[in-house]
């Protein structure tokens, strides 16, 4: 064996130097992406926070909200266009784990705003196009399927907060009149009781709801509210069939429970709104603790 035993340094050093350069480049790129992802997340959270000041849906946002959010959208644009060269070609997937946090939060704010403005869910294609616009025009950032789905899961939490705030402040579940093709029972607004007592209950309904319902019988529109939308979204998300071996499956399982809780929170709040109703004086709370009080209430 012809080895140069006296050679002090490792013969492999040149090879490792090449590796070091490659790995350093990779780590630097990853760090830039992670940092941008964090900044995008923070800006998106601020946008969502401002959006929560909205009280109505299916109409343009109030100027005060769009104005304050302009700055944050601009910030998001800056971040995306800065890192879009780092996320091209095979690197789009190489760093997908590093950018997904920002992408999901972006997706959450984008879909929440889209819902407030149109009362519909933004499609994957439209959302991808919006993200592509933000990056470098020649090298757009890709929105992965995972980013989209997980962002939508998170958005249900914002819908919950929005619905509950609206009910607490104005005793009305936000909704809007939409064209109606048929009058099947499941398309009934959540706030309207179904069954023989519906007529009797109607007087107890918030004025806006009964009005729209009367109007609905004339111009073939019906009222669709956040509760119905959340339920449809829940059913749709639950219907997704994701292979257990896929990386998406794990994240979806985690978010599924949170999403279901959000829907139930709105259902409970709506139940409270209906059960306390309008026949009770404002601020009246049922005393559910003591059975003995029943006599008092009856004689009341």
């Amino acid at each position: 064996m012809d080895k140069q035993s006296d050679q002090p340094s490792s013969p492999f050093l040149p090879m490792f130097e090449t590796f070091r350069a490659e790995l350093d480049e990779h780590h630097d790129r990853r760090e830039r992406i992670v940092k941008a992802s964090r900044d995008i997340t923070a800006a998106s959270k601020k946008i969502i926070f401002a959006l929560q000041r909205a009280r109505q849906i299916n109409q343009p946002l109030h100027q005060s909200i769009t104005k304050s959010n302009e700055l944050h959208w601009e910030n998001i644009r800056t971040q995306y266009s800065a890192i879009s060269p780092d996320l091209q070609g095979q690197n789009a997937h190489r760093y997908s784990r590093n950018i997904t946090g920002g992408n999901q939060e972006f997706m959450e704010s984008l879909s929440f705003q889209h819902y407030l403005e149109t009362q519909t869910l933004i499609s994957y294609q439209d959302a991808s196009a919006r993200l592509a616009e933000l990056g470098n025009p020649h090298a757009p950032v890709t929105l992965s399927l995972e980013d989209y789905v997980l962002g939508i899961f998170d958005m249900t939490g914002e819908l919950m907060r929005f619905a509950i705030t609206a009910m607490a402040t104005s005793q009305v579940l936000p909704g809007s009149d939409v064209p109606s093709s048929s009058g099947h029972a499941e398309s009934r607004p959540s706030g309207i009781a179904v069954g023989p007592s519906a007529e009797a209950m109607e007087i107890d309904m918030p004025a806006t709801v009964s009005e729209s319902r009367e109007k609905g019988s004339r111009v073939h529109t019906r009222r669709r509210d956040v509760m119905q939308d959340l339920r449809q979204l829940r059913a749709t998300l639950e219907g997704l069939d994701i292979d257990r071996s896929s990386p998406l499956s794990w994240d979806v399982q985690k978010k599924m429970g949170v999403m279901q809780q959000s829907v139930e929170k709105v259902e409970k709040a709506l139940y409270g709104l209906i059960v306390r109703g309008r026949e009770r004086p404002k601020g009246w709370m049922p005393d559910l603790k003591e059975e003995g009080r029943r006599g008092e209430v009856e004689s009341y």
Binding site: T118, L145, V149, L233, L240, D243
Partner: peptide, 21 residues
């Protein structure tokens, strides 16, 4: 203005992509 919040084609498209993957 859409009759429903979620256009079913959105998730049909997603599901077919998921199945493909």
């Amino acid at each position: 203005m859409a009759e429903k919040m979620v256009n079913p084609s959105i998730f049909q498209h997603l599901q077919s992509k998921i199945d493909e993957e």
